[in-house]
Structure formats: structure tokens, C-alpha cells
Design a protein around this nucleic acid. Structure first.
Lengths: 339, 339
DNA sequence: TTGTAAGCGTTATCAA
DNA sequence: TTGATAACGCTTACAA
């Protein structure tokens, strides 16, 4: 071809320079520069039978722009960073369920445009996930898991996170602790409820289902729940919210109703998202290293994609309690009684 | 092949079914289903000489996870939605400058992995942008523009947005209005300064450069600036911040120093991001429809990518003033004097 | 170390 | 309406 070499040699120069004699190599580089030649990745991937892309599937919810949700943003940043390091491109898919509410994730794989997919924001009992394994596609779950199946996932130890938050509240003297959880369609919510119960149990505080309120992880639902909580027959002296957004809504609602936080009532959140330090008082919360989680997810997943790993991976990330200003001792008297 | 048809016919069935007789068509679909056959998009794109991908290039700033920035999140959601509708895939690129601080965007094009790119978060005088045009690659700018060049962009009318915010403050009786702007490396900042000056001028308020403070669009820089502003010889009765994050930091700093907002001092933000209603008092701000901007951007850009449009597009989005609780009349006396 | 040639799964052209 | 065939730009045996 151009510099008098065969296409095979050009290919070698760009893929495995050592295989080529120095002279030829230089000549090829020179010619490439002159002709402004660049290997075509589409063709290269095509012949190799790969795409070089990893898909990131995120739920598309009309009117909710998912990236504004801290958790997705951070995760995606981490995933993108890692993918870049591994030489893969990141294709973003906005997933919409069909008429029956079923997600057909397989569509993203079939065309061969991705070598694997990372699924964000999926729910328990998502039939689409199970059918994916049957088809032999490579994928992994983030912030979700399916028991008894050989499905890769990376998740937070939400039982522990929730447990830590509630233990903190209990250590401050609170015994009537409300829990504003998210929908139980998420394994996250189930796990956090488990952690909540565990902390109560260890402290001989009877579980009362009235104290568990279900929101939707949005700020508004926290706001709305504040009224609900104040209507409780036995008012809680502390509330643990399943995420910071709901906690922020809670703080807002409670404050508007004249309650002082943490003086009258303590509020703890979850995620340690940016909102947690914007709200006043700043939220005591559970820190989750989402960005790192994204990176870790990819470092494991890539092995699977490349076939370097035969079995699935299951990673649990440890959360960390962050104490700020929204939680405090229950009250002078009660605290004294405890200590 | 399988159902006794040629490859050409299979191709036609999937790309242009009407060209094929009904009987053969059905037979092919049947066989495809049985064999679980799906056209390979990589191969298809390869032979067509396209990638079917649009790249979205976003700045990679160490330790700043860009999606947490409302503006990027919304834009990206809009872009993703539109791209999906046009049948393109979205490849996300995290752009890092080289040792000399120069962005080599061309790398994303050369391999042929994208048919065009949308550049987010670029700055004025970005040499990388200019060299792109010289190479004939297809791209467009979002929230930036280059004058005197045939470069496509979609931007907000920031002169107008800024003008509206300041006019609002002036209408409330404020005459000493500080402006917390972002770095002038962004056309956005330059334009907002222009709008600020214009509003002052129309109201015969002399421009005083001391009143202009430069932050970096982060919350912290707003917080820090609050001290700076209070040190001003003639204290302003109102502050206009170039974005909501800085305004939020400002509110926090000012509040900590014992000032009441808007009683003692009014604060206005920009973007109408989620933070604007989380902060107390809720921010008066300038609404920018970022999601829609993203969609619009793609609807214009796709024409360019497909070659349906020969020249570049230049779109300016109109902002809208949103009045909330962080701005109020300057003070009884002054207001009376005005009305 | 380098070249030859086959082949990857499509689409497009031309002929039937 | 359908089929045969070349071509897309690269990689990979295999041969030299």
C-alpha cells in the first residue's frame, strides 16, 4: 500500500508494533501521518467480532431526569472513568418498558452494539433481568441483586448502612424511631428495613409497623411524609429516611410545621449526597462511595466481558456513618436516664 | 441461506420489507426467529461507513463528578432522549486535556467511532475546537459559541437572562447590586456581565468594577465570596450570582454571618436548578430549559450529521425569570422613595 | 520480518 | 421480486 507495505503490516504496526522491523514501522507511521490515516475502529471491531462498547442502561422515567439524582450521576462518572481506562466506550441507553411494563434489555445486546451492559436502577422481580441470563448475554447489576442466581452484581451493604444509622439514633437516646423507607420493589429498601429492625431488636425496642412509612425516594415524598409522621399516635423523637432527598423533604416539612431539628426531632438520611450539606441543618447520613462503586463495578465486569472470569462476581460495598447536625440527644431527661 | 433465501433478501427484509414479497418476508422472519438471528449492526454500520453513534464530550475534571452538576445532567438527559428517537446511540466521552492543557477532541472522531460529537462545557479560546473545523469533523457546541466562525452551537441568551435578573433587583429598589460571576473563560460569564451592565446602564446606575466578584460556579466559591462582599466599602443591598450553586453558597455564608435574606440582603441565582428550591429561602433565579435545550440541540445537529444541512446552526434559547423568596424590596424607606 | 489471501456480516449493484 | 457478487477496512493464519 502507501509506504510500500502490505495492509497486514500496517495492522501490525498499530496493534503490535514490536512485531514489525523498526524501519518499516517508522515508514508506516510517517506515511500514516502524511495521509492522515487512522485505523478504522468500526472495521477493526467488526472483524474481531466485538463492539468495544459497554452499555449502561438506566431507567427512563418521563419527567424525571435521572442524572439529576446524585446516585446515578456519581455512579456513571465512576463507570465512565473506569471504562475509559480499559479502552472501552460507554454507550448510554435510556430504557423504557414495553406496554406490559416489561423491560426488554436484550434489545441492547442483540444488535451486537455492546459487549456487555451494566444495569442501573433496576428493581426486584424484573423479569427482563432473568431472561437476559437465559440468553447468555453478559451483564451486571448495580445496587440490586438476585438471590440464588449466577448474576453478577455490586451493591451496598444496606443492611449494615441502615443498622448503623439507627444504632446512632438509639445511642442518642431515641427509642421511638420512625423509618421513611422507599418502595419495597427495590432490594435496597428491603435491606434497609432489615437493618432497621436489627438495630431495634438488639436494643429491645419492639418493632412497630406504624413507624414505617413508604415514600418514593423523592424530596416531595419526604415533605409529604412529614405530616403523616406528625399524625402518628406516639410521636417519634427521630426519623431515619432511606435517602437524603426524602430526608431533605422531611426537614423542610417538619421545619415549616414549627419543629426544630434536631432539638425537637432528629432526622438522619442516607447516601451522603450533595443535598445533605445544602440542607440546614446539615444531614447526618450514611456515606456510600458511589463513584468508587462505579469504578469497581467495571474493573470486575470487564473480566467477565473478556472471558477472564467464568463465574459471576458479587461485591458488597461498606457504607460509613457521617454524623452532622440533624441528629442529637433525645432530650436532657431521657439522656440522663440512659447514661 | 437458512430459509432458502439469499443474504441480500434477508437484508432487504430487515431494512426495507416492502421490497420483498410477502411470502418470502414471512419465511425470513420465521427462520430468523427460529435461528435467533439478528442483523449485526456493527457489520451494517461498517459497510455503510458510519458508526450510528453520536459522541457527547464532557470535561473530565478530577474530583469533580460532572453529572452532579444539574446543568450537565439535564442537558445529557435531553440529548439522550432525542438521540434515541433518531436511532443513534450515545457514546459518552470524558475529555482530558493533554500536558499543555490542550483538548484534542479529534481523537474521538479519527477512529470512526462516532458520526459527530456534541461538546459540553467547553471554554472560550479552546484551540481544540478550532482545529476540529479544519479537519472537517461534524460537531456542535452547547453553551458556548465562537464568533465569526461557521461553527454550530446552541446557547442560552445569557445577556438577556442576566439582564432580567438585575432588572428585577432594580425594580425592587436595589441600586447597589453586586455580581458574583463565573470565570471569564466562559462565554456565559462574559455575556452575563454584559447583561448586568446593560441593566445598570438603563437605570443610570454607574458600573463599579468593585461590585463584580469572580467565583468558579461552585457552591464553595459562593460561600467564600460572602465574606468578600461584606468587606465591600459600600455594602450592596442585593447580589446576583451567575448560577444557583454559588447563590446557595452565598446564602449559607451570609446567613451564618447573621444576615437575613431577603430582609437584609437580596440574592438571585441563575439556572433554576434543583438546588434553588432546596435552599432556604428558595432562590429567585433565571430558568433555563436545559433538558429541552439538549433535545433541540440534537434535532438540529442530526441534520448536519446526515448532511441534510450544509451550513451550521446557531440557536439561542430564551431564559425566564423565576421569582421566589430570596429577593425583596430594598427597604421600606428606599422603596417609598422610588414608587 | 513481511506478504498473501481468506474472511468477518452486511449492503449495493447488476442481472435475471 | 430475488439472487449472485463485489466491496467495506481490517485481522489472522499461513507462507515466504
Amino acid at each position: 500500500m502507501r509506504s510500500g507495505v502490505s495492509g497486514a503490516t500496517v495492522s501490525r504496526v498499530f496493534n503490535n508494533p514490536k512485531l514489525v522491523g523498526e524501519k518499516t514501522r517508522e515508514a508506516v507511521f510517517k506515511a500514516a501521518k502524511e495521509l492522515n490515516y487512522h485505523p478504522n475502529l468500526i472495521a477493526s471491531n467488526f472483524v474481531k467480532g466485538v463492539s468495544g462498547n459497554i452499555g449502561v442502561i438506566i431507567p427512563y422515567i418521563p419527567n424525571i431526569h435521572i442524572f439529576s439524582v446524585y446516585y446515578f450521576s456519581e455512579l456513571l462518572s465512576g463507570i465512565g472513568k473506569a471504562l475509559d481506562e480499559y479502552g472501552y466506550n460507554l454507550i448510554l441507553f435510556f430504557c423504557k418498558a414495553d406496554e406490559n411494563g416489561i423491560n426488554d434489555y436484550s434489545a441492547y445486546f442483540k444488535s451486537g452494539k455492546v459487549d456487555g451492559c451494566v444495569l442501573l436502577g433496576t428493581r426486584r422481580n424484573d423479569a427482563g433481568i432473568l431472561s437476559l441470563t437465559d440468553m447468555g448475554y453478559k451483564f451486571c447489576l448495580v445496587n440490586n441483586y438476585i438471590e440464588g442466581r449466577d448474576i453478577s452484581y455490586i451493591d451496598v451493604d444496606n443492611i449494615m448502612g441502615s443498622y448503623m444509622a439507627v444504632m446512632h439514633l438509639i445511642s442518642l437516646g431515641h427509642r421511638r424511631i420512625a423509618f421513611l423507607n422507599g418502595p419495597e420493589s427495590y432490594t435496597n429498601s428491603i435491606d434497609r428495613l432489615t437493618g432497621y429492625k436489627k438495630a431495634l431488636e438488639e436494643n429491645n425496642i419492639p418493632f412497630d409497623s406504624q413507624n414505617v412509612i413508604i415514600g418514593n425516594y423523592g424530596k416531595k415524598s419526604g415533605y409529604i411524609s412529614s405530616s403523616e409522621i406528625l399524625k402518628l399516635r406516639e410521636k417519634p423523637s427521630a426519623i431515619f429516611a432511606g435517602n437524603d432527598r426524602m430526608a431533605a423533604g422531611l426537614v423542610q416539612g417538619l421545619t415549616e410545621k414549627g419543629l426544630k431539628i434536631p432539638g425537637d426531632i432528629s432526622v438522619a438520611g442516607y447516601d451522603d449526597s450533595d443535598i445533605s450539606t445544602i440542607v440546614r441543618p446539615a444531614l447526618t447520613t450514611v456515606h456510600i462511595p458511589f463513584f468508587e462503586m462505579g469504578r469497581r463495578c467495571i474493573s470486575e465486569f470487564i473480566k467477565q466481558v473478556k472471558g477472564e472470569r467464568s463465574c459471576s462476581f458479587k461485591v458488597l460495598i461498606k457504607p460509613e456513618l457521617i454524623i452532622r447536625e440533624s441528629t442529637a440527644n433525645k432530650s436532657e431527661i431521657d439522656t440522663r436516664g440512659l447514661s
